[in-house]
Design a protein around this nucleic acid. Sequence first.
DNA 1: GTCTATAGCCAGATAGAC
DNA 2: GTCTATCTGGCTATAGAC
Lengths: 204, 204
Amino acid sequence: MKKSKDENTEGQILDAAKDVFQSKGMDGARMQEIADKAGINKAMLHYYYRSKQLLFEAVFKNAFSLLAPQLNTILNDDSSLEDKIKNFTMDYTTFMMKHPYLPNFIIQELNRNEDFILKLKENTGFPNLKKFKEKVADEINQGLIQPIDADQLFVNIIALNIFPFLGKPLIKAFTDKDEKAYKTFVEERKTEVSNFIINAIKKQ
Amino acid sequence: MKKSKDENTEGQILDAAKDVFQSKGMDGARMQEIADKAGINKAMLHYYYRSKQLLFEAVFKNAFSLLAPQLNTILNDDSSLEDKIKNFTMDYTTFMMKHPYLPNFIIQELNRNEDFILKLKENTGFPNLKKFKEKVADEINQGLIQPIDADQLFVNIIALNIFPFLGKPLIKAFTDKDEKAYKTFVEERKTEVSNFIINAIKKQ
DNA sequence: GTCTATAGCCAGATAGAC
DNA sequence: GTCTATCTGGCTATAGAC
């Protein structure tokens, strides 16, 4: 059975809570709205998750554990930097178009409570840049790419990929795009962004 | 007199509200906290701004009007693209290091209420890409830079500049930096980012 | 496990004295 | 203009019947 989550109350609550927390944030979310969306009453939320805070943490960890594996494309496989960048840009953008609230939710709640990330770092599977740094050093030594700090490159890559989803309303307003034009714009970034990055770092 | 804002109650309230709204957001902010910070009582907030919503809008418009002129560096002066990019990256990063809450506040509240940007667009002085697009087309025709869609380039530029402030907790965690190392990292981006962009677009 | 009813609290907003 | 006191409503959380 695939849909076991939808079949029990606990899973229905988590699904509903995900929707509400991701669109309204911790402070803006209402337990009543979560209950309504899950098709049960408020008392059940506390029966299963004890408090709003704990329910929120369950949703947040779930969201983060969905996002972290995406980073492994670029951090931990053995392909060339060029392939890493191409694959990551393609996969990440595709993934985000399916989960548009995710980046903003993560970013926002981490800014609201910076200690929260400490809990995440304790978990196994928290993204690690070691292998990526080695690869960058390696390709610089081989003369394949220009010298660049690996941290800076990493931030550039995720900035170019994540920002279009964080700043969607801003981008739509500045570039005068409606929803449809914005979708096309993001779709084009699947190749645009990797070309841009590769041009920036490749040896002339 | 310079500090007229601090001398009257209305200005003190706006200053306090700015601090609280920008760090807690609309939903997380408490009128009591704003009153305490302004050194007056809750009743005065309503006397001057009528409601929480209106006080929030005053703060938001104020914040946006601080941000918008920054964009004019890149949009509306007459220098070359290369100079625009260099100057914008330098100025914007310097500015943001002084107002670290600003980008996250704007982005977050626009995502919470997408209609909000419509109110801003009515104002004169809302950033416009017309001149920037002409400049890009011009330099492509002259063979100075590679062909690129002006909207994509614009988003790349602001993504690389804004993201480090939006994703600060994430960056600190991924790259294992403490507050001091993060500051140095951002400082280095003042030149790093413009070099990166110029490499990406310049004719080989 | 699931429900209804309600406790208990805290927020935004207002009345009215000074 | 500024204050204290209070209203009113909405929220999280729980008690207790089934």
